[in-house]
Each structure stands twice: as C-alpha cells, then as structure tokens.
Simulated assay, not measured.
Amino acid sequence: MLDEPAQPPRSERIARYILVVSVLFLIVALLGSFIKVSYAVESPGPVTDTLGELDDGTQLVRVDGAKTYPTEGELYFTTVRILGGPERHISVWEWVQGHLDPDSRVVPEDKVFGEDRSAEEVEELNAALMEGSQHTSIAVALRSLGEEVGQENVVARIAKKMPAAGALRLEDVIVSVDGERPGSLEELVNAIADREVGEEVTLEVRRDGRTRTVTLETADIGNDRAGVGVVLEPKYDYPYEVRIDAGHVGGPSAGMMFALAVRDRLTPGAMTGGKSVAGTGTIADSGQIGPIGGIRQKMVGARQADARWFLAPEDNCSAVVGNVPDGLGVVAVDTYDDAVTAVEGIAKGETADLPTCEDAA
C-alpha cells in the first residue's frame, strides 16, 4: 500500500489561497481601471450665490446707470458635476461607483453631450447657452419692474437642406409671422409651428435696414412639428447696463435664479428676508420657467450648502417627488412670477400655501 502524499501545513494552504485571490483581485482591478465605457456620472456640483461676490470682490450681478440696494441672504444657482465625456470615457470602476452612490446617476454619454460632439463643441455650446440665459434673465427681471426693454428676434443658425436655407440669412430680424407681430420669442416660434407640416408660412424679415416678405413651405423639424429650420435668439436693448458673471459655469439652467438676483439688486430690502434659497430652471423671454437635467443632484447640492428652500421647475416635479433631501422644502414654479411670489413668501415665513411638487404631480 502506497503512502498518501503529505499535505502542506494548513497555514501554507491558506497563504496560497490568499495569494491566488489577491492576484485575481489585482487583475480584475486593473481591467476595471483600463476598460472604458461610454457613460457619464452625474453628481451634486457646487452652488453659487447670485447675490454674492466674485474672487476679485466684485458682485456677480452688477448694475450701472440705475440705483441698487444692499441685500442679504442667498439666492443660489445649483450645478451638476459630470464625470466622463466624449474624450474622457469613465472606467468600469467609476461606472460601478456611480451606481453605488445614492446621490449620483449614471447615464449614457449621448444623453448628456449629444451625439458626435467633441468636448470643445460641448463647452462652446454651453457657454453660448449660458450667455443667452443671462441676457434673457436680465430682460425678464427689468420688465417685471416696469422697465421698457427693446427686443429683436434674429436668425442665429440655419439648418442645411431645410426651407430657410438660401432664403434667410444669419442676423435677419423676423418682424412678423403671417402678418402678426408676436410679443415674445416663444410666441414667434409657436406661431411658425402653428400649422400642418407642408403648409406655407409668410415671414416679414428685416435685413440691412430693408424689409422683405419671404414665404416658405414648412418642413418636419421633429415630432411632426412644423418649422423652417432656423434657430432664433433675442437681442435686447436694455435701458441701462446689467452684467452677470458666473465664471466658467455653462448651460441655461441658472436663468431663473439670475433673474431673481437682478430684481433683488434693483428693489429695496432683502428679497429673501435673509434666508437661503436655491433653485434651478431655464427662463424664456415670456417668463416661462423650463425644466433642466440633474434635478436630484442639484437638490442634494443645495442641501449640502445649507439651503432650506429650493425652487424647482414644475415640469421637473415627477423627478422631485420622493427624492427631496431631509430639511429641504421644495416649491414648484412654472413662471418667473411664481418664483418671485415663492421667494417673497419664504422671506415672510408665509409658506403654507406655496405649491409643492406633490401638488403639481
């Protein structure tokens, strides 16, 4: 009878097992670090007080040519920090960490950056959106105070192979649609779209000081919506100079908070009553507040900054309900007037009747 081979000591077997597991873990870790995926991680970003000062001591919102008033409290605009992008895909480990973090959200890159855009193109687009948002917020705030703000709606971009190509030019001013003069950019766009695809639209256009009439057959610009293939933007004539400097933040989602800050600077007393109010939302020249992305992360960022109240676009309310951080009150707003009413109510402590996202939903 042959003798069985001697087994190595138990301690040696455990050491070998640990070594094998460690090597396997190292391999997995390296693979997770080097394998990239086309996703982005959204997490709470920093907040900025629109009533505050820049690093050089100047105010974020500055007015020249009109009386301004001291204020207190905070009107924060909120941001989302993005990890990943077209030229810096996240690793598998970052993807895993994003899913494990309850305050983060993992989304496909094209949902954040669009398709076939470079990081530089995304940055340029966000800078343009931020600039446009600032201009519109100033106009809305001044008009709410009874100021006259001149406005022209100009052609900013023309899509290729669309009806406007060859018929309209950049910087053309759209004066009227079918003989009617819309009061806002939103009304102008809706007036063009208010027909079946393929029907004609007549535009009165001012170019180089001369007015002409252009009749175009509309095309489908998406979702069976009629259009001519142009991007329009307003150009304003303010009664005095108002400047907003938000640093390197991009995108249009701070528009509502900028408009509130401009109003606060131009009216006596502290609009917030010394309280901390955060919020987010785009703003149209009609005063309509539009939805934004990353609402959950923005609420978390606001609460981390110790804000007690948050203004949320009504169209974002489905993502707000059930996700509000402890200690944060959320008010649903649909227009700029709603936002003004909300802040003034918070300042007075009269918040019981302010609309919530539960009400809106």
Rank of each mutant, 00 (worst) to 15 (best):
E53P: 05
H99R: 14
L260E: 04
G255K: 03
G327S: 06
V230W: 01
I174A: 01
G183F: 00
V175P: 01
E94K: 08
V175E: 04
A278C: 02
R296D: 03
A29D: 15
K36P: 00
S318V: 15
L31F: 15
G183Y: 02
D56I: 12
A165T: 03
F34A: 13
V262Q: 03
M299T: 06
T335M: 09
A307L: 03
L232T: 03
V231H: 05
G247I: 06
L168R: 03
V96R: 01
E4Q: 14
P182N: 04
T202N: 09
I295N: 06
D359F: 02
I346C: 06
A284F: 03
R296Q: 14
E42S: 10
T272Q: 07
S144E: 15
A193N: 07
I289E: 10
P46N: 11
E196L: 08
V20W: 15
E72R: 15
I27K: 08
R263N: 10
I35A: 12
G273L: 02
G198I: 04
V230G: 04
G227V: 07
L31K: 08
V300F: 06
E344S: 09
D103V: 12
E121M: 00
V201Y: 01
A165L: 07
R16F: 14
I138Y: 02
L145K: 11
F258Q: 03
L260H: 03
I292T: 06
E121H: 02
T351I: 14
I158D: 11
V155G: 04
D172Y: 03
R181Q: 15
E204T: 05
E196I: 02
P313Q: 04
L216R: 05
V175T: 05
S276M: 13
A305S: 11
E152I: 01
D315T: 06
P86W: 02
V189P: 08
G52L: 01
K235C: 03
V122H: 10
D245L: 09
V41D: 10
V107L: 13
A246G: 12
D326K: 15
I289F: 12
D103F: 14
